[in-house]
Amino acid sequence: MAVVLDVAVRLAVIVAAFLVLPLIAGQAEHKVMAHMQARLGPMRAGGFHGWAQLIADGVKFAQKEEIVPAAADRRVFALAPAVALIPYLVVLVVVPVGPGLVGVDLDAGLFFVLAVMGIGVLGSIMAGWASGNKYSVLGGIRSAAQLVSYELPLVLAASSVAMAAGTLSLPGIVEAWRWWWLPWQAIGAVVFFTAGLAELRRPPFDMPIAESEIIMGPMTEYTGMRFALFMLAEYAGIIVLSALTTVLFLGGWHGPFLPGPVWTLLKVAVLVFVVIWVRVSYPRLREDQLQRLAWVGLVPLALVQLALTGIVRVLAG
């Protein structure tokens, strides 16, 4: 009984975090991006600096008509948002926030995370194919190409950390983490974070949804709650990516003075800010530049990191 209760509480907390953190990230993006562009952002909803803007948006989305194009593959079309969103919820289950504060401590946690995150992109591809729209198909194909290109450096960088820690368990990696891993795994961290951004199709890697050429890419035909789920998936992806980067490369709950979970959340928040910051600062990469960055830039760097990790690991014994 106690075990069941424990699991229920953990799942409830995870679901709550999954619903709240993306909203906070979205609001932060609204305000931070606005101020970086010398604007104020939402100021009216909720009364104080538009804190309820995303709630108002949610209400608006819920009221909108859900349109399914006549040429759409209805079943796939309806399933795609869920496929895009749920993997991030599942990933959160294995992400440790503090010592012992984990949904499930899997032995192959890192492997599980990388596998599940790849499914999230599948939702985008499904949406692009099922919409019966040429822009959606183009966006879906770009998503697929991006997934193929960036999954490789992502996995290589993550495997570098696993090599260093000698375990695939996320809590195990955090416990094995030492401060000098920061410079040691710096290249891997940059590669992992960048490749993760590309997997999320966040600007400046948002070629699949480049609104100036293919409307909204795979989401062109989506309206109402389904579109809202796609947007929620994007922000949930930001949270998951930031959390994974924190756990793998930034030492998770390690930190002076403050309790562990606070350190984890703090690092996640900083990374979310960096995600927004990068989005505001850089223009969108062209499709060929996108592929070039992955194959000519990130993959070799990840391999270098892998070699460096192996050498140090062998020399240090």
Partner: peptide, 8 residues
């Protein structure tokens, strides 16, 4: 990055 940060 510095430009956007300064604006913020």
């Amino acid at each position: 990055l510095s430009v956007t940060l300064r604006h913020m």
